Computed example of a mutant assay.
Amino acid sequence: MDFLTILKAIILGIVEGLTEFAPVSSTGHMIIVDDMWLQSEQFLTKYAANTFKIVIQLGSILAVVILFRNRFIELLGLRFGKNKAEVVPAERKSKLKLTHVIVGLLPAGVFGLLFDDYIDEYLFSIRTVLFGLVIGAVFMIIADRLRPSKPKVESVDQITYRQALSVGLIQCLSLWPGFSRSGSTISGGVLLGMSHRAAADFTFIMAVPIMAGASLLSLAKNWEYFTLDSLPFFIAGFISAFVFAVISIRFFLKLINKIKLVPFAIYRIVLAAVIYIVYF
């Protein structure tokens, strides 16, 4: 495998890492680079190309697990002992509980299972993604304009079960490709009185189990497409997605309370315009 091919994998991983958890729709970005580069690789069949996307998504998920590792350990009620390697029970300091996360995940999980085939067959097109990008951007602008002047929830630890469920219901909008999971849940959280940072933290924590579960299931179904020829391509994409997801998440969490959602919404509209010009 030549250097140019590996470079393509790295750039695709960068796109995934930078956009997966920002409210800009990684799907919209992958549409552009997919047709430009991914489909041009002769050793990647259609299914192997889809497997590659799953692999780099797992790199982004690992970044969240690493950055939020202490939070996930608290949610599971575990800690690592000082003098022992094994995991031992610990008192839960965080008010955010695993049950909050489960409540937030249920609506999208149920709707995803019920309509998965329909979404795959009818909603994964350039036109539907463009619609999701624009409508999602409008929703983000509305959320910033109608949000309470002073957030009632400054920290993710203050989220109630009712708010967790409400955010989960709003997350169902992200089942429409292009709408963006982060865009929908952060906007929903802000409308419900959360600070942008609290809504973002909850979004990232919820994303791990649902994305990891879906990705691992897809990976198991497509395991045969891992070949010696494509393995370096997969590894390069995974590593670059992980590294740039870490950078993106850290930068985003420092920035979100300052700039809010409108700049990301404007970017989405510009992206939709670019995709429209390129394809139509």
Rank of each mutant, 00 (worst) to 15 (best):
L219C: 06
I186M: 06
G132C: 07
L219M: 13
G13I: 00
V103Q: 08
K152T: 15
Y225M: 10
I135M: 06
H196I: 09
K260C: 02
V270K: 00
Q158K: 13
L78N: 09
I141T: 11
S248H: 07
F280L: 14
K95T: 14
K152Q: 15
M140F: 07
L18Q: 01
F131W: 04
L106A: 14
F234T: 00
P23D: 03
S94I: 02
Y161R: 14
G104L: 02
N50Y: 00
W37Y: 12
F52E: 10
L231K: 10
V167A: 02
A137F: 12
I269R: 10
A241V: 12
I73N: 05
V274H: 11
D144Y: 02
G183P: 00
I102D: 11
I186E: 12
L123Q: 07
E86C: 12
K150M: 08
Y267I: 06
I56W: 07
S218E: 02
A22G: 08
E20Y: 11
V103C: 12
R127V: 11
L12Y: 02
L4R: 05
M30H: 03
A200K: 02
I141R: 12
F131H: 06
L75Q: 12
F111E: 01
I186T: 01
R69G: 11
N222H: 10
S166E: 10
K82I: 14
K260N: 14
K221A: 07
I256W: 07
E16F: 05
K8V: 11
